[in-house]
Design a protein around this nucleic acid. Structure first.
Lengths: 128, 128
DNA sequence: GATAAAGTTTTACACATGTAATACTATTTG
DNA sequence: CAAATAGTATTACATGTGTAAAACTTTATC
């Protein structure tokens, strides 16, 4: 597991687009995020540049434009952000966190079934 | 549900002590946090004052010192921080979040049993 | 009453973040 | 070729946050 720079809240929006669609042009990122946020293209470009400065996003030439690719693994980032959330809000106590989240989230019957399966596997796994 | 100022990462440490022990003196907060962080008393006092400026922490005189009490509900803060995390990292998708967290956290057999019960209740609750 | 200690408030500073515009460079179009 | 367009890099600015010290006020001690 690698350590990486902290991704700020608004930077997550950019990274999530890049993880999903890479290699991806700035214009595409802008297109996607203009729909889901109030940001101007300038704001989004700034975020892109900051992420590059942080070393979590890279780019290479493709024609007249750059295509951007992530330099960090999405799963690693999700994991560290999750640990950070767990530590900050629940003092590291996993069970109360899961209890709280399960009670609070909207879940379909299929979701619940699925989660039960995962818990079952986890139980089988024993000390995993 | 009330809206409240955003509590920053380091401020959570202070709020968690206050929620747990209120009404509580600054010295007690400092005592507790000196053990679990590298902060000086000055840093901790600053955080206390910022939280008061944010309107999430209040105080009243008790003898020569103040005792501090939370002005926001812990559950409300946990809820909004959780929603923020869910939105930022998983784009609002509750199930993948729970899957990811369950897979990543250390859970005892009792924990798992407990979580299963909660899922069962959730399933019974139907469209809750 | 003067001094020391205790407790609070104010100030400091660097960096991060949210949000955006402007300046610059390269390519395309007329 | 000049102008327009497209794409990138740099600059801007306010606020927030991490971390802490200094200044101030009140109380306790001698």
């Amino acid at each position: 597991m690698k350590t990486h720079a902290k991704i700020a809240a608004s930077e997550w929006a950019v990274m999530r687009v890049v993880w999903e669609e890479h290699p991806v042009t700035a214009n595409t990122i802008i297109e996607v995020l203009s729909k889901s946020t109030d940001w101007t293209p300038e704001t989004i470009r700034t975020l892109i540049n900051r992420l590059m400065k942080k070393g979590v996003l890279g780019h290479e030439r493709e024609g007249r434009a750059y295509v951007y690719t992530p330099l960090v693994d999405e799963a690693d980032c999700v994991r560290s952000e999750s640990q950070s959330f767990l530590q900050r809000v629940y003092g590291g106590a996993a069970k109360p966190m899961l209890v709280g989240l399960i009670e609070e989230c909207d879940l379909s019957a299929e979701d619940i079934e699925s989660l039960r399966d995962i818990l079952d596997k986890k139980a089988e796994g024993g000390t995993e």
